[in-house]
Design a protein around this nucleic acid. Structure first.
Lengths: 250, 250
DNA sequence: GCCGCGCATTGATCAAGATCAAAAAACGCT
DNA sequence: AGCGTTTTTTGATCTTGATCAATGCGCGGC
């Protein structure tokens, strides 16, 4: 039974196969393939880094690569002509980036922390995809998980209250945090503005709801509001309006 | 250059390859494969119909098949414990249903009109996927298109006004309508309740916004509010807050 | 035609969150 | 440490869409 984490990081499911850094992960992708194909993958890789705040691609840019996050954190955003912005995805380590079969990025990709990507030339990756059925069918599953996560977020954006939205995001970040110790603790990769953008709210509302959750003893803050602590994760999930515990049968 | 329709129907992209009914479409999927595989597909198919209003699967149900819509219209919905419901997808003819690699349906699937599906046994389809790389890599692209559509909808749910949401949905329905004649005309497959569910609004708000769009001369109604007419599609797109015309480079 | 039911529209009021505005922390820099 | 910048918090008010409550309309049955 594997832990199902309902967010935009389903591509990271690969990382559950004993590999945290990029090269090992891509080896895991091809676990069912023979050694030759693994070498082929290793051969195609390159790395690149961006600083916090840098734009990786604008809406409509040609993206010549696919790849995955090695370190750091990036956001995907879509916007309206008049400047309204909605974040549609949050990329964390081990998440997949890019679109085999499509040249153009349909949303803006921005590094929110210093970021390193492991990249493959898109066309060569597509060729590989056509030759390695296990890789392709794994990628289908991953895309569909990603789709489920997007649809979960639609439920949040369409029906949840401000408090539930904020609690949901905090729970998501805490779940993905490296430490499992009690109390749960995680550094927020996103500032208030990015959180608001992700949640379909304004900065002020996010701030007020965080204050309210703190007042109610559901969470504590540290490090100048950049670190969340949680003693009672069940209470946080209740505040998120969604007390399923994220365990799913395969 | 193909028309990019930003909704949940990206799976229908297959239908652009000269095939409207299900068997032909699946043949198109395997256009690059050899004839034997096409026959294999034909062999595995079965059909089933549901009446308007019937539930096809509940959240958490085991879905033993994958397939596609031959005729009619279905909705995907996700809900919170307290009864709040959000529609997360609208399935129209030629759209794909189901999740290779996953047994459980993560949302409720309901027929909104009389509906016929063309189905494949899920496990046999997965086997096929592992054997036919072109099919798998095509399915990756389709899933990613579907993901883009879901993320477009996140922008709508997170940032658009009630008027923009309603206009967006009407534009979407008109775009998918069979007739291209002027004035544009389409029967609404969804009642006000389903529209509200899709748009993250209430029935009353949807009704008021439709009235307002009618008052402003952007649309007309017919057939007791079940048919939309539109003389000025550009005006509708403007009201949708998103006047890109849906043309996308491949 | 007339009745009854479900669906859609319209109206009055309310409340959650947005907006406008200011104060308070946190952080980087010299 | 001191200063300026940026981010976060807090406060007051306004607006959009939700809620509560009728009313209207279309359609099928007899």
């Amino acid at each position: 039974m594997t832990r199902y984490i309902p967010n935009f990081t389903a591509f990271g499911a690969l990382a559950s196969q004993d590999c945290a850094s990029c090269p090992i992960r891509h080896r895991a992708v091809c676990a069912k393939c023979d050694g030759a194909e693994m070498d082929h993958l290793a051969d195609m890789k390159s790395y690149r880094s961006w600083e916090a705040g840098e734009t990786i691609a604008l809406e409509g840019d040609v993206l010549p690569f696919v790849g995955s996050v090695v370190q750091g954190c990036a956001t995907l955003t879509r916007s309206l002509e008049d400047g309204r912005v909605q974040m549609v995805g949050l990329l964390m380590p081990s998440d997949f980036v890019g679109r085999p079969g499509r040249t153009v990025a349909p949303y803006e990709v921005t590094a929110v922390t210093d970021l390193t990507l492991c990249m493959f030339d898109r066309e060569r990756f597509e060729t590989l995809l056509n030759e390695a059925p296990h890789l392709a069918s794994r990628l289908v599953e991953m895309s569909l998980d990603e789709l489920d996560a997007a649809r979960d977020w639609m439920l949040l954006l369409g029906r949840k209250t401000a408090r539930e939205r904020v609690a949901t995001l905090l729970a998501l970040v805490l779940r993905r945090a490296p430490t499992d110790a009690n109390p749960l603790r995680a550094d927020l990769p996103l500032g208030r503005e990015a959180m608001a953008s992700y949640l379909g709210l304004t900065i002020e509302t996010v701030s007020r709801q965080i204050t309210a959750l703190r007042r109610d003893g559901v969470i504590r803050l540290d490090g100048g509001g950049r670190t969340v602590l949680c003693d009672d994760f069940a209470a946080l999930l209740t505040a998120a309006g969604d007390d399923e515990d994220g365990i799913m049968p395969s």
